[in-house]
Design a protein around this nucleic acid. Structure first.
Lengths: 237, 237
DNA sequence: ACCTGAACACCGTTCAAGT
DNA sequence: ACCTGAACACCGTTCAAGT
């Protein structure tokens, strides 16, 4: 609608977006556009100037709704968690704690694949928002339901969530690298480790094929299984 | 010596450093100074301009020894790993795989506490350098020594190292935040979760005290134990 | 009440010029 | 062969001015 030129610099894009923006600027709208932007173009595209362009407002207008960029990025992460919780909740049997933990682990994996830029920026942070609160309550109530004492409930909750966040955060950070670096790091097992001197690195050479073949998904499942098994062994009989 | 003024801007610091630099610029020297700098002043201080000042050379002189900042940061991480390996190696019994894994886990924790800035920037990367190579060889040979088949050796190696890197990376990233944000995130359990509405968040409220009391170290040990136990259960009998 | 736009104090990196 | 220094194309953020 109304776009006469196919090519367009930042100025033209901003002008078009400004024309198309019918609703008032709001925190929700800013988070919407920020998620669209990073999903489409990666973390490098998430700058205040680029976001202003996307919204059709002056870049500094965002500061009317978020204290700073950190505040905005945390709001984006909480939105992602909230959406994930909503898609998780209906099919959950609170009595089956293993199934709940596995569902949360699967959801976290899906989040870091769908939104690597935001995930990588915030996986080690506390959003304190509604999404995070619901997720914390779900996990704590589920683990408490097994009959574990309060201190064990908390310790295993944190072991579970920190292991998950750490591994998914690693994956998200890798995924957020520029294409060149991602390729460079991804090819390391065949490029570097498969050709190390046999005499000095016999084990690396002997396992070169398996090192190149193992998937991040298998590794993640293995770690989740390890924590679940630890909890099983700790349950009161 | 020879500084006549007590106060000094960047220019004066650079001039003094230039006078004091007796040896030629080299990759080793640059890594030395970069580690000193980040250890002393945190990740925000690691800029090419600041590093040039520290070395007493023009900021762009560093580009004669490293392709870009990413290249430099990876070299710093590999140096840290190499030093950690050197301090680890002497007392190690290769036959006691549990002890080796625990020693590596302890070393990784020490690294992310001593060098949070570099650790946070690179924990999800492959350095491909001498330090990393030795660490990979140590872990692979140790796990292969238990009699596990090659594919299991690699799977458990990756589960172990990814769990460790993820959790230590989280800790390092938290530690690298500015003091304000670190305080904000650290106080979240008492500031936010301890005062949630009882009706909506009963489990969070019931565990508020334990959530504030559990330490990162306990959580880390729990995750490491979980992976070690999983490996124990998988060992051929 | 909310948005604009110039301005500030930074970044990493390139490249012609020096020695 | 190695280093310098100006310059380029960016950042996040502040604040006086507009409406």
């Amino acid at each position: 609608m109304g776009g006469q030129r196919a090519s367009s610099g930042g100025r033209a894009v901003a002008a078009r977006a400004r024309r198309e923006r019918a609703v008032a600027l709001s925190a929700e709208l800013i988070v919407d556009r920020a998620l669209e932007l990073t999903e489409r173009e990666g973390s490098a595209a998430l700058t205040m100037r680029r976001l202003g362009e996307e919204l059709g407002v002056d870049p500094t207008a965002v500061y009317r709704h978020f204290r700073d960029k950190d505040d905005l990025v945390l709001a984006c992460m909480d939105r992602i968690i909230d959406n994930a919780y909503a898609s998780l909740q209906p099919g959950l049997d609170p009595g089956d704690w293993r199934a709940v933990l596995r569902a949360v682990a699967q959801t976290s994996w899906a989040m870091c694949e769908a939104h690597p830029a935001i995930y990588a920026l915030t996986f080690y942070r506390v959003t304190g928002g509604p999404g995070e609160r619901k997720m914390v309550e779900l996990l704590l109530s589920t683990l408490a339901g097994t009959g574990l004492p309060a201190d064990r409930t908390v310790l295993y909750y944190r072991a579970f969530i920190d292991a998950i966040l750490g591994v998914c955060g690693m994956k998200a950070a890798t995924h957020s690298l520029g294409d060149g670096l991602q390729e460079k790091d991804g090819s390391a097992w065949t490029r570097i480790y498969a050709v190390l001197p046999q005499a000095e690195y016999p084990a690396a050479r002997a396992h070169a094929q398996e090192l190149a073949a193992v998937t991040q998904r298998e590794i993640y499942t293995t770690i989740v299984d390890a924590v679940i098994r630890l909890i099983e062994d700790a349950l009161p009989t």
